[in-house]
Amino acid sequence: MTSFVLIRLLRASATLAIVLAVAFFVLRLSGDAALETLSIDAPSEALSAFRAHWGLDEPLSSQFISYVRSVLTGDFGRSMRDGRPAAELVAECVPITLAITFPALLLGVALGAPAGVYAALRPGTGFDRCVMLAAVAGFSTPSFVLGLVLVWIFSVSFGWLPSGGATNWRHAVLPILTLAPSGAGTLARFIRNAMLDVLSQEYIRTATAKGVPWRRIVLRHALPNAAIPTVTVMGFMIGQLIAGSVVVESVFSWPGVGRLLAVSVASRDFAVVQCVLLLVTLTMITANMSVDLLYAILDPRMRRERATAR
């Protein structure tokens, strides 16, 4: 188990290093932060002073080395827009984003998981087709379209909920309802397919032939086995908690990490963009590692394989 974790930690570090390097160089090669921040009207002296202040007049390699050094000591740099520490800005936005993405994830699981299981138990019926239709609609409808439709219905037509902003809980309702269907749809399809796979296995037929009650077959044999591919999808969904709502945050003027990222990319606020990307990568890596560890817990075969390998 230790070597299993160590290998994954090494892979995670490599992924993190690649993201860090790619983000650093791509950002710097795709636009001049001095021009984007100060404008073309800026006197040459002001542009030079800006570049010198932020170290942009150094060779790229030197900039990268000093950036990596700072990151390793926990300093993620400062925002070029107002001089505030990038980590502090990101930390302020994370809870705001989680306030919509986490409930959306829970809602997605609460809707998608039972729907997928129920559809798998009644394959080919009207209910199954309805669930699959709703699932496809859920994950294929662009979130900005769904968001605007929901605003039209609940804000413009009925006036029940605010159309945007983040002042109180009522402002979170529409962003959550916009984010949830995508997760619910994805999960419903995955669980249905996983369940159908499991239900067609010989051990299920054997259990049925032995007269094991159907309810027990589903709960004890089918669901735990179907959970393995489902956990993979859940890993992706958890990984997207931080950065999966860029569009929704823009549509609803929700001041979370997504908005921060969009504004920072537009203004070439290097430190903030890099800090957000690192956080997103870390979240993804953590989610994936957790999924790997969960596999081991959920699937006894993997535990045995590892034990044999030792």
Partner: peptide, 18 residues
């Protein structure tokens, strides 16, 4: 002054009375 980056969101907010 509230920031609403999307033109459609501003329009909807106006229509909704926000």
């Amino acid at each position: 002054f509230r920031v609403a980056p999307e033109a459609a969101s501003r329009q909807n907010g106006l229509l909704a009375g926000d």
